[in-house]
Design a protein around this nucleic acid. Sequence first.
DNA 1: CACGAGACCTGTTCGC
DNA 2: TGCGAACAGGTCTCGT
Length: 275
Amino acid sequence: MPELPEVETIRLALRQGSAEAPALPGQRIERVRLGWPRHVAAPSPATFRKRIRGQVVQDVQRRGKYLVLPLTRDTLLIHLMMSGDLGMLRAGQPLRPHDHTVFRLGSGWELRFNDPRKFGKVMLVERPELILANLGPEPLSEGFTRPVLAERLAGRAGRLKPLLMDQSFLAGLGNIYADEALHRARLHPLRRSADLRPGEAAALWRGIRGALRSGLRHNGASIDWVYRGGDFQNHFRVYGRTGEPCPVCGSPIQRILVGQRGTHFCPVCQPQRPA
DNA sequence: CACGAGACCTGTTCGC
DNA sequence: TGCGAACAGGTCTCGT
């Protein structure tokens, strides 16, 4: 799925609109087509369709990797998971492959949830905070300071990479940005979280924020049909660059499996044992 | 609490 | 060239 920078890029596009498409806030949802009813996590698909009808989109917000759309009465939560994408299209346009969930808007436009792997979720809830309460801090927020990260790290027994991808530890990082953040911090993905020295925790904080900021600056990455966004893929330091030279020291980037996820790092810049 | 495996899905790429 | 295996942005659940 899109990670924080890609979701944020989609959020901004929907909220602001463009020369080709209107902004989403202010649009009234007339009806919903559920081509893949299992997209609906809650309530039941029938109740979802009935209940969302007539509600007006108030805003397009984000929390972690969730898109949060306050409506007239309820809140629509959308998670794009591995392969989801959202786009505004004219209602007359033929459905494209994988256009599973389609929100028909009063203006003659449609918000389409395209999702080849069908892992995505939509949810209509009264109390979004109940769902979002499980998320860790927003890594780019003011409240996420170096001491906050250091304290959270100290309380954990596990390895760095799985922890960075744990959304209850920190909200928004996925496989790409976790690898990029660790390389920036010069930390091996299997280092024990609680073992970091203060300087290393500070480096990780800078690495996380730097990787996300860089992604945002490039409007996210575009890979295959799954990521649609900017050109951050041309600025990856380690992700997907197995065997290619480390941008810092030139050593070949190595790929290992961590928690069944491909993990890319520089064996020289990111040693197992601290220097 | 930490971690691995399996499930959920489809499409592309890789190796023989 | 063809075909099965491996692999892909995420998260949840179960078992150890």
